[in-house]
């Protein structure tokens, strides 16, 4: 087939559809990430705690770590309907499927991050009379977050890619959209190249966002964003120091 037969202009012609498909994918992956972070943290704490909760968490993690996204979404969408009569919309099923899988991955990320915070940090917080929950929230979590963050970014990229298999339940996400366009234009090479490019670009953006957050969490904070955020506070501190230094 001559090169001229590749209709690259198709990409531009269908840019709105592609963008809409990406947004649908993000609409599933975004909320799923937030819910999976919460459940993943609870799972990590359960696993680090006492049995039988620790055993239950371990069983959950080991099951859902091993289930492919395609199987998970079919199971949620069709299986729950058959078993319990619960009918989810495709978006709901997609979010639940992602949460089931990624909460188990995230819980392992969180567990190692929590364990990376030295014991003395918790002890110091307690010794200063802080309530154990405040020590966890204000001493342990901020330090663990810094350790976990790069991996959480990778998880979001993984979730976005996994939405591509959800065309199987008819979710109108990016891959589903491209398959539809392809079925009327017969330009698989052009369209799937564009598809890959959109996923890669999205991954770049996600990576950039997480790197920016990561930079602002290093101590001292690096990067322009965090510099702008902390400028006022720094100035206020300088004034406080100046005023107190003046008092002998």
């Amino acid at each position: 087939m001559p090169v001229a037969a590749y209709q690259w202009s198709l990409i531009w012609q269908n840019k709105d559809l592609l963008l809409k498909g990406l947004l649908v994918a993000l609409e599933c992956a975004g909320p799923a990430l937030i819910i999976a972070i919460v459940i993943g943290l609870l799972l990590a704490l359960a696993r680090m705690g006492r049995p039988p909760l620790a055993w239950l968490a371990t069983v959950y993690i080991n099951i859902f770590r091993g289930v492919p996204a395609l199987v998970s979404v079919i199971w949620v969408y069709f299986g729950w309907s058959l078993l319990f009569g619960i009918n989810f919309t495709v978006v709901e099923a997609a979010v639940i499927a992602l949460v089931l899988l990624y909460s188990s991955f995230l819980s392992e990320i969180f567990r190692s991050a929590l364990l990376s915070v030295p014991r003395g940090q918790r002890e110091a917080g307690l010794a200063l009379g802080m309530h154990p929950l405040r020590v966890f929230a204000q001493v342990v979590i901020p330090q663990a977050t810094r350790v976990a963050l790069p991996n959480v970014g990778s998880m979001l990229i993984g979730m976005l890619k996994d939405t591509s298999t959800f065309s199987v339940i008819g979710l109108a996400e990016l891959t589903y959209t491209v398959q539809n366009i392809e079925s009327v234009t017969f330009q698989p090479f052009v369209l799937f190249t564009a598809l890959a490019a959109v996923y890669v670009a999205a991954a770049f953006v996600i990576d950039f966002i997480f790197r920016t957050i990561e930079k602002s969490l290093t101590t001292p904070p690096k990067g322009r964003v965090s510099g702008a955020l902390t400028r006022r506070r720094r100035r206020r501190l300088e004034l406080l120091v100046e005023r107190l230094e003046a008092v002998v």
Binding site: P118, G120, Q121, E123, A124, G125, L126, A127, L128, G129, M130, H131, P132, V139, P142, Q143, R146, L217, T219
Partner: peptide, 19 residues
């Protein structure tokens, strides 16, 4: 928690909060 508000402690490894 009540006890520790009366008792200060300094550790060998300082244990300042690095963040």
């Amino acid at each position: 928690v009540e006890l520790r508000r009366l008792v200060g402690m300094v550790f060998q490894q300082f244990n300042l909060f690095p963040h």
